[in-house]
Design a protein around this nucleic acid. Structure first.
Lengths: 143, 143
DNA sequence: GTGAATGCAAAACCTTTGCAACTGG
DNA sequence: CCAGTTGCAAAGGTTTTGCATTCAC
């Protein structure tokens, strides 16, 4: 279960708030991402969406994902050579790639953490986004 | 010019220290990466290597790069959906992707910075590597 | 000599593109 | 109606693979 409303009306509202057409495809793509707390690839999103909307195409899923990322409704996570993953968590957080399970986990950050990270940038550098990725292994139990 | 010795003997020594066969291909791949301070893609490495060793194949370049990364002689940098880049700088540092120029720049970090970053990880998580990537634009002049 | 590395070509993989048909406002 | 979106199929670019040949030790 996600932290945010995910019923029909709420989803459409989110889309409209971003000034994008609330198409059924975008709604479903957004829905399946918000419905879980994981980090699916485009292909996994496609699979989930297909069960609700069998006629959707993979290209449309890619289109919708791009739109949602641009709107800031969903985040992108990039690790190594692996396919791009999508993240429903809009809070400031880092990612931990567990090499044992292959899973990606969210790492909560203290308040203002990202703001303080920016301080390492030399004068003249302005970061619009920051990605902090850990890779390693997690003992079973945590998260 | 790189920070580290890059003549024949020194390169071979580096490879031997990693317990890998010091083949001419590995040596040249390592050389062209250490010779500059930039972040070439596999294709760019291939182009540079070819001028010194015209018979080398792209697959071998990929093999060598993988080996060098595993040895820790070279680092990998991953940004967005872009092709993987390779980095000669073994110091602790972050990367800044300048969206205006498309270039990737090294960002120096204060001592122990990465160690302190690790502290945000919950108990039970052990990170073998950390990637800190900024994206944005840099005013001309810096770096 | 032998296991490892190379070179080549083909395949795999993820993602993008072109375009005709459709649709939401 | 009309710009924007979809669905499909085909192309694109990067990386990997299979296998015969060659090489470093």
């Amino acid at each position: 279960m996600a932290t945010t409303p995910k019923d029909h009306a709420a989803l459409l509202e989110k889309l409209r708030a971003c000034d994008v057409r609330p198409t059924p495809q975008r709604e479903v793509v957004l829905k399946v991402i918000l419905d879980k707390r994981d980090h699916p690839t485009a292909d996994e999103v496609f699979a989930r969406v297909k069960s609700q909307m069998p006629t959707i195409s993979l290209a449309t899923v890619y289109n919708c994902l791009d739109t949602l990322v641009q709107c800031g409704l969903v985040r992108q996570v990039n690790f190594e050579r692996a396919p791009t993953r999508y993240c429903p968590n809009l809070e400031e957080h880092a990612h931990f790639h567990d090499e044992t399970t292959g899973k990606i986990l969210d790492v909560e950050l203290p308040a203002d953490f990202m703001a303080r990270l920016r301080e390492v940038l030399p004068a003249g550098f302005d970061a619009s986004s920051i990605e902090l990725n850990f890779r390693g292994s997690a003992k079973p139990g945590a998260n």
